[in-house]
């Protein structure tokens, strides 16, 4: 009898599951040409076998440089792209076989600013999406009103989206993504191209969705600081592979404090830096003074060599200091280059 309960319990946990997202050896190759029957085409690998799991109620980040495969991954998870290999399950449902049911229960804020109809008003956009998401008619008005108020666009509800600022468009895109009250929300570069104010709003909004409404969020970003401050756990992805996965704290343990060096310098040609034998990257450039900030992962013995290497290339070193490690340093340590290189 006990065994039966136990068995039932295990089954229940499996079925409802604690995992909102499960990816196992997920792969994607794009054909270079349209794969017509009998046509030989070459394929480009964009995602090369990634595995991770996201708990329900977790805020999970995929962090990686341009072209790392973040968007490709998110499109496979949201059933928009067919994986070339591996498996993915959302809320326990297979992305290949249960696309319809998954689409009902998730939503996505896609990359870019043209994902809504610019020639419709904010209200008309949400109304349209409420319809194609089968939101019950009697809840429609109330839900749209609540969402528009939530993102601070209720006063502007009758304005055409084309007259909105980039930040307002993104807030509306988020409201649209909540129209079906999704259990898992995917966001692809949600703060890309936003002004500082809007970016802060969006980040706080996402955090509240997880903390207060218990939603699961998976987002991608190439902003280190954003991932570090916002996410519960982060997978760092580079060239289609996950190279590290942990909490921000855990990730930072990968780098040692005494190895994290910041150099301020002038007269640097960034092209030369990328061919350096050191784990180093330019992380900031002041356009007015021409001063650059470099971060490096070097130990006591390497440090003098690094400085010598720089000086020999005509770089004017202004200061060398130890710094508290950040996620940027983790990336530099793991790949030998910066996130923007």
């Amino acid at each position: 009898m006990k065994a039966m309960f136990l068995f039932a319990g295990v089954k229940w946990v499996r079925g409802c599951g604690m995992w909102a997202v499960e990816a196992e050896d997920l792969r994607k190759s794009y054909p270079k040409k349209i794969p017509l029957p009998f046509r030989r085409v070459e394929w480009v690998e964009a995602v090369r076998g990634i595995s991770f799991r996201v708990r329900r109620g977790e805020l999970f980040g995929l962090l990686g440089p341009n072209g790392a495969g973040k968007t490709t991954t998110i499109k496979m998870l949201t059933t928009l792209l067919e994986p070339s290999g591996g498996t993915a399950r959302i809320l326990g449902l297979d992305v290949r076989r249960n696309a319809r049911e998954i689409r009902r229960r998730i939503n996505l804020v896609a990359e870019g600013e043209r994902t809504l109809y610019w020639r419709l008003s904010a209200y008309e956009n949400l109304k349209y999406f409420a319809r194609i998401y089968y939101v019950p008619k009697d809840e429609e008005r109330e839900r749209i009103e609540r969402l528009l108020k939530l993102v601070g666009l209720w006063e502007r509800r009758n304005d055409l989206v084309m007259n909105f600022s980039r930040g307002m468009k993104q807030r509306l895109a988020i409201a649209k993504a909540l129209i079906n009250d999704p259990e898992v929300l995917f966001l692809d570069e949600p703060t890309l191209g936003l002004d500082v104010q809007s970016a802060i709003f969006v980040r706080e909004f996402i955090r509240r969705l997880v903390d207060e409404d218990g939603k699961t969020v998976l987002l991608t970003t190439h902003y280190m600081a954003e991932a570090e401050r916002l996410c519960d756990r982060i997978a760092i992805i580079d060239h289609g592979k996950i190279i590290a996965l942990d909490t921000p704290k855990g990730l930072k343990k990968l780098v040692r404090e005494e190895e994290t060096i910041e150099i301020r310098a002038k007269n640097i040609e960034p092209e030369k830096m990328s061919s350096s034998p050191f784990k180093m990257a330019v992380i900031e450039r002041n356009p007015e003074t021409g001063v650059l900030r470099l971060r490096a992962q070097v130990d006591e013995e390497e440090l003098p060599k690094l400085v010598e290497w720089l000086v020999r290339r005509g770089v004017k070193v202004l200061s060398v200091e130890r710094r508290e490690p950040t996620l940027e340093d983790v990336f530099i340590k793991l790949t030998g280059r910066g996130l923007r290189d």
Partner: peptide, 10 residues
């Protein structure tokens, strides 16, 4: 990209 927003719906 609005097409993809539509495809995403059930």
């Amino acid at each position: 990209g609005t097409f993809e927003t539509n495809v995403l719906s059930p």
